[in-house]
């Protein structure tokens, strides 16, 4: 029985209907992603996103009805949410100054605001790990490199595709995308043309959540099998 229905961000992507169990599975995915990123007990986490984004409503049991444990409860962290409007960048600066989070989850489209121009966060407040996400998309590699050089706390990506209830974080060390096998069936389909000899196996991610009755969905997330010997024992997928 559906207890919560949330509209997906992308036009035409429709609605996700959750039973309590499905909602718990989705929150588990975010909690695991937080764990991959290093969020632990006692950490403070700020989410700069809309309340309808899974990055926000799954972050705490307080943020959604029928949610028994959000990512905060799963990791022992404390979450604070700032509405994800560009106009709120001043509020975010205020929050960073006083709340002093260890992690800042933000909409990828807001990254330029945080990093340049009159709205840029003061350098001394760029100490949290910045985790960027966008529905079905990731920032271009060149942008990412540029942003990483300007954010002291380090930058990670949280891959997200609302229509497939998909959430997975990059390992901060090897940058492999950790896709929990017990939560998702994931494979690379629709091979993309190679841009270089190192791009073997590059294609689009097709994913199906095990906690929600959805057909497999080919996302627009470009991924590849990660290179061997990258220093981590796991080797899931890599955003390409």
């Amino acid at each position: 029985m559906s207890v919560l229905t949330v509209q997906a961000e992308r036009p035409g992507a429709g609605f996700l209907e959750f039973s309590r169990e499905a909602l718990a599975g989705y929150a588990e995915a975010l909690g695991r992603a937080w764990g991959v990123l290093g969020v632990g007990a006692g950490d403070r986490v700020v989410v700069y996103d809309y309340g309808s984004s899974p990055v926000a409503y799954l972050a705490s049991r307080a943020f959604a009805p029928y949610l028994e444990r959000g990512a905060s409860e799963l990791t022992g962290a404390t979450a604070l949410c700032v509405d994800g409007l560009a106009d709120n960048v001043g509020r975010l600066a205020h929050v960073l100054r006083h709340f002093k989070p260890r992690f800042l989850f933000a909409r990828a489209e807001l990254a330029p605001l945080l990093l340049a121009g009159p709205t840029a966060m003061p350098v001394e407040q760029r100490t949290a790990r910045l985790v960027l996400s966008a529905d079905g998309d990731t920032p271009a590699r060149s942008e990412r490199v540029s942003w990483e050089g300007r954010w002291r706390g380090g930058l990670s990506l949280l891959a997200r595709c609302d229509a497939a209830a998909f959430l997975a974080a990059e390992c901060p060390r090897c940058r492999a995308l950790r896709v929990p096998e017990d939560l998702y069936e994931a494979r690379i389909t629709r091979a993309l043309p190679l841009r270089s000899p190192h791009e073997q196996g590059r294609g689009l991610l097709t994913v199906r959540p095990r906690f929600l009755d959805l057909d497999p969905l080919t996302t627009e997330l470009s991924v590849r099998s990660p290179a061997k010997g990258n220093g981590c024992s796991h080797a899931d997928l890599e955003l390409a």
Binding site: V3, L4, T5, V6, Q7, A8, G51, S52, A64, P65
Partner: peptide
């Protein structure tokens, strides 16, 4: 909103959330 979340759950309402703010 946080108070509503708990109250709606206790009420046994089916909650619908539109995208955005």
């Amino acid at each position: 909103s946080m108070l509503d979340n708990r109250a709606l759950e206790w009420m046994g309402a089916e909650v619908l959330c539109p995208w955005g703010t």
